[in-house]
Amino acid sequence: MGDHIIEADNLGIRFVRNRRRQLRLREMFIHRGGRQPRASDFWPLRHVSFQIESGEAVGVIGKNGTGKSTLLRLIAGVLIPDEGGIRVRGAVAPLLELSAGFSNDLTGRENVHLVGSLHGLSAAFLKRTFDEIVDFAGPQVRDAIDTPVRHYSSGMKVRLGFSVISQLPHPILLMDEVMAVGDAEFRKKCYATIERMLAEGRTLVLVSHNENDLTRFCTRGLYFDAGQLRVDGTVREALDGYNNVVRT
């Protein structure tokens, strides 16, 4: 592998899918020692190769279930590939699945300190910037900052999660549909923050169905279909590949 900040080489990951994901206790006893429900292998991504340069803004495009979020988890190191490999040269600031890794049992305040510290932010830095983080997330989050996150709406989790992750100095930012649940005011603040990060030379990998967001930030696009990388080109070329399939 070369000197790219992110490099995937024949990347593949396999999940085991069971059509009967959850068995009742009675069914577990019935199947014990006998025939088990059939499981099948499923490859959300396979034979995927690409390189991303430092400072690039790359949109990951495709229908639901085509491996986009799985790719971000592989880049973040949350998942380990079964085939090939992926190399990431630099720390990653991940905002995945709306919540940035929050614990539902902890309050918003506790999650700010937990997630921030897990990503290397010092207790002194978090104490100094806490009000700024919460203010960015908005008055609804501030009013609930000492309430367990399980009671937050998905939009509140996104706002607080983005507020924490945007404080990280890491060179790579991963975003998965972050702005899809935010209101207009929050999106405006997000846009300004992302533009600042890109101006600083950060690398962005953005999963989104919003064509305006993709064309605003990304110059390059990766279009995935059925776990395969179909288009690696400009963001317009990737969007055209996606739209051509959606229209058929």
Rank of each mutant, 00 (worst) to 15 (best):
M1G: 13
D3G: 11
E7D: 03
N10E: 12
L11T: 10
I13V: 14
R14H: 04
R19D: 15
R19L: 15
Q22C: 00
L23I: 14
L23S: 11
L23E: 13
E27S: 06
M28V: 15
H31C: 06
R32F: 14
R32E: 12
G33V: 04
G33L: 07
G34W: 04
Q36I: 07
Q36W: 00
P37R: 04
R38A: 14
W43G: 13
P44R: 00
P44H: 01
L45C: 05
S49L: 08
Q51C: 09
E53Q: 14
S54Q: 14
S54I: 04
S54L: 09
E56M: 08
A57C: 14
A57W: 09
V60E: 01
I61F: 08
I61C: 05
K63R: 15
N64H: 02
G65C: 04
T66M: 06
G67R: 06
L71R: 04
L71H: 05
L74H: 01
P81Q: 06
D82C: 09
E83G: 03
E83F: 14
E83H: 13
G84S: 03
I86R: 05
V88T: 10
A91N: 09
A93C: 12
A93Q: 02
L95P: 02
L96M: 12
L98W: 08
S99D: 12
S99T: 13
G101V: 13
F102G: 10
S103G: 04
T107E: 01
E110N: 10
N111Y: 03
N111I: 08
H113L: 12
G116L: 02
G116H: 02
L118A: 09
K127C: 10
K127Y: 11
D131Y: 01
E132K: 12
V134L: 06
V141I: 06
A144F: 15
T147I: 14
T147D: 14
V149L: 00
R150Q: 14
H151Y: 15
H151W: 11
H151S: 08
S153F: 12
S153A: 13
V158Q: 02
R159E: 02
F162H: 07
F162Q: 13
S163Q: 10
V164P: 05
I165C: 03
P169K: 01
P171H: 01
I172N: 05
L173K: 01
L174G: 08
E177C: 06
V178C: 11
G182K: 00
G182W: 03
F186N: 07
F186R: 05
K188V: 05
Y191S: 09
Y191N: 01
E195L: 13
R196C: 02
M197V: 02
L198D: 07
R202N: 07
T203S: 09
D213P: 03
F217E: 07
C218G: 10
C218V: 03
T219E: 15
T219K: 15
T219I: 00
L222R: 01
Y223N: 05
D225L: 11
A226M: 09
Q228G: 07
G233P: 05
E237F: 06
A238L: 03
D240V: 08
D240A: 12
